[in-house]
Simulated assay, not measured.
Amino acid sequence: MADKEKHVLGLSGGRDSAALAVYMRQHHPDIDIEYFFTDTGKELPEVYEYLGRLEGFLGKTIHKLNPDRDFDFWLKQYNDFLPSAQTRWCTRQLKLRPFEQWVRPMLNDGMTIYSYVAIRGDEEYREGYSSKDDNLIIKLPFKDVGIDKAGVLDILEGAGLGLPKYYEWRTRSGCTFCFYQQKIEWVRLMDRHPDAFEEAKAYEKSAVEQGSPFTWSQGESLEELSKPDRIQQIKDDHEQRLLRQKKNLQQNPLRSDSEPLDIDDLYGKAKGCLACHK
């Protein structure tokens, strides 16, 4: 029965999930999809701005899921250890847990939930969205029809949305202090959102004093990273990478404009957390 089905699509504030929302609206208008965003309270302001524009295009409110406990609470629960690639408690507690709490009563009531995930046709299906419940069914529309990164960009341009503004300086959505950021992204966060950078630095200083083995950026503290000589070194390294990448980039004659470079194109693909970075 229809009332025993629910269709949901999680938005991260990133391009792929936004493009999937547009695609489903355009190609499957008969499916009543509920769009949701899990708000950690530590997101970039550009994320909220983009979600607002996306709401306008979809003509539907994006349902906000808020964690029942904030970052500070969970930091204490994990003995002041910062989240890291080895211990991704932030994704587990601030992104996945609120989603599970939202859908669990519906699943318990016998409802079948279809969750649409923006894994592209040019990506491997990665772990993180595997369902442990037979009534929670994962759907991969982009994978099914072969839409790749270029296709995602076309969808967003065609809808008049374009990319979120933070793509001018950063690849990742999610928290301002995401540990998957490259060092150049930390430098740019310091330039564009100094208050958020200082907050991240304060969290790091306190955590290290409490014995945390992790810093936000691998191999150095934000205090060290923010020294003028180090900033210049990071910027110089980034420019060299950019020049090498542009030199090696194959132009696609079928596209009138060259594909924008991602930070990941320069530094190698980071696994990331799908709930944040899609």
Rank of each mutant, 00 (worst) to 15 (best):
V8T: 06
G10M: 01
S12K: 11
V22C: 02
H28E: 06
F36Q: 00
G41V: 00
E43D: 01
E46Y: 02
E49I: 15
L54R: 01
L65K: 09
R69A: 14
F73L: 12
L75N: 06
P83G: 05
Q93P: 07
Q93E: 02
K95P: 13
F99G: 05
M106H: 13
N108Y: 14
Y116L: 05
D122I: 11
E124R: 11
L136K: 04
P141K: 11
K143M: 07
G151R: 04
V152G: 05
D154C: 01
E157P: 10
P164Q: 07
K165T: 15
E168R: 13
E168I: 11
R170K: 15
C178D: 01
Q182W: 08
W186L: 02
A200D: 01
K201C: 10
V208H: 03
V208E: 03
E209K: 11
G211P: 10
G219K: 03
E220I: 13
E224G: 13
Q232V: 06
L242I: 03
L242V: 09
L243K: 12
Q245G: 10
K246Y: 10
N248P: 13
D257M: 11
S258D: 07
D264W: 12
Y267M: 02
K271I: 15
G272C: 00
C273L: 15
L274A: 12
H277Y: 04
